[in-house]
Amino acid sequence: LVRYRTISKIPQITLNFVDLKGDPFLASPTSDREIIAPKIKERTHNVTEKVTQVLSLGADVLPEYKLQAPRIHRWTILHYSPFKAVWDWLILLLVIYTAVFTPYSAAFLLKETEEGPPATECGYACQPLAVVDLIVDIMFIVDILINFRTTYVNANEEVVSHPGRIAVHYFKGWFLIDMVAAIPFDLLIFGSGSEELIGLLKTARLLRLVRVARKLDRYSEYGAAVLFLLMCTFALIAHWLACIWYAIGNMEQPHMDSRIGWLHNLGDQIGKPYNSSGLGGPSIKDKYVTALYFTFSSLTSVGFGNVSPNTNSEKIFSICVMLIGSLMYASIFGNVSAIIQRLYSGTARYHTQMLRVREFIRFHQIPNPLRQRLEEYFQHAWSYTNGIDMNAVLKGFPECLQADICLHLNRSLLQHCKPFRGATKGCLRALAMKFKTTHAPPGDTLVHAGDLLTALYFISRGSIEILRGDVVVAILGKNDIFGEPLNLYARPGKSNGDVRALTYCDLHKIHR
């Protein structure tokens, strides 16, 4: 019993810090008490220290592992850092350059016999395009090294910054494609005289377009951006097909006994025919423009016929181009109408809503002055909100995010209106959640004399007048207030005048 009563005193000691020596009952000389009392004092002292730490809000209350900052290894790049964003855009520009100039170089340097010394005699450094290609190869190699040090988000939505895990993730992902696209074939085969082989191998750079397509997928929600990307894709495919079309004609031209190829026909049409040795002929500019003209006309199913396939190889390629053109029509131009419709969806919704308003007016036989006010209010409210119901949009977000959005939407009023000066951010967040926005066209009466005042109004834009009878008592403008002081009276009061809008007004109100 003594032991039980001794232990039962522990909660009292913990909360009230009572010393055991003052209790005459606990001072009985028993061996059990002498053993338990020192333990009680020690526990009391420890609990006292913990309570003191909690009340003082000291940093040592938290466990040590929670006080440590997340460790980022040296030379690790955050995937959302500004440097990584700028670097990704730079790589994107280099990939676009590669997609345009690599097929052009591979096709127009394929057994090209233009006048001038061969590239091997001039030297590697004197070729501007080769120098640019070398810079692109170096940048792609540097990009691989950067990807080995860039964080990523795993399946659990955690940012991984450990170098080993980053390397394994990159090896399992895009490393092989990036490595093949970054191989400097110019340096590996330079001086061997195989410019045709170098041009063909350099087309491996186009593998990076797969990554670019995935990154550009984030802009699919913007109709104008999608339309622009589709047109660029169409032009890029036409450019690639033009390079292939020229390569076919250029390879067949020296081996044909009869002059029936499209390059021969082009030379005869523009007065620059090929001679018996295969030299001469149109310039590279004429060849490229004509090839691009043929691919565009074939892809769009126009086909004027002034550039036509004559050999079997050219006919087979033309059939493939027609098939590609039909697929592009289905996948690209078939979506253009939907994209344009999405661009004008706001206008369509406006006309639909206006039609419903006019049908309501016609069905209920609203008189002319009231009908005009109804239409003007709808037009003004639509121009202010673009038909978007803010309350319906915010309803799907958590309250903390709703408060931040409301604070942002009402920031101008909260910053410049005098009653809100000096208020804490928590108070402003709470008030912003209570605001209701209303609009009024010129001549609209917001409050009639004798109406119950259940709200306090803040003028965000425009001006109003307060009338008693036919006498203008006051004219209020931006950041002015009218209405009933909230919670100042037990019952809502009545208006002693009319409140009429002089201009288009936007008002925020808080109800009782």
Rank of each mutant, 00 (worst) to 15 (best):
P70S: 08
R74N: 06
I77F: 07
L78C: 04
V86C: 12
L93W: 01
L94D: 05
T98D: 03
A99S: 03
V100N: 01
T102D: 02
S105T: 08
E112V: 07
A119Y: 07
A119E: 08
T120I: 04
Y124H: 01
A125H: 04
C126Y: 01
A130E: 07
V132I: 05
L134K: 05
I138H: 01
I146N: 01
T150I: 01
V159N: 01
V159P: 04
V160W: 01
S161V: 11
S161E: 10
P163R: 01
R165P: 05
K172V: 04
W174E: 01
L176H: 04
I177Y: 05
I177R: 01
I177H: 01
F185T: 09
D186Q: 10
L188S: 10
I189S: 13
G193K: 14
G193E: 08
I198E: 04
L201I: 07
L207W: 09
L209T: 11
V210F: 04
V212I: 04
A213S: 04
Y219E: 04
S220M: 09
Y222V: 05
Y222K: 04
A224P: 14
M231G: 05
F234N: 01
I237G: 01
A238E: 01
A242Y: 01
I244K: 01
I244A: 05
Y246I: 13
A247S: 01
A247W: 11
N250V: 14
Q253V: 13
S258E: 11
G261I: 01
L263A: 01
N265C: 03
N265T: 14
N265W: 01
K272Y: 01
K272M: 03
S276K: 15
S276P: 05
S276Q: 11
S277I: 04
G281K: 01
G281V: 01
S283N: 10
I284T: 13
D286R: 01
D286S: 01
Y293W: 05
S297C: 04
L299A: 01
T300N: 04
F304L: 01
G305Y: 01
P309H: 01
S313K: 02
L323F: 03
L323T: 07
G325Q: 03
G325V: 01
S326A: 07
S326L: 07
Y329E: 15
A330E: 01
F333S: 03
N335A: 03
L343T: 12
G346N: 13
G346T: 13
Q353E: 10
V357C: 04
R358A: 04
R358Y: 03
R371N: 06
M390T: 04
M390N: 06
V393Y: 03
Q402E: 03
Q402P: 02
I405K: 02
N410I: 04
S412H: 13
K418W: 06
T424D: 12
C427A: 09
R429M: 01
L431Y: 01
K436C: 06
T445M: 09
A449Y: 13
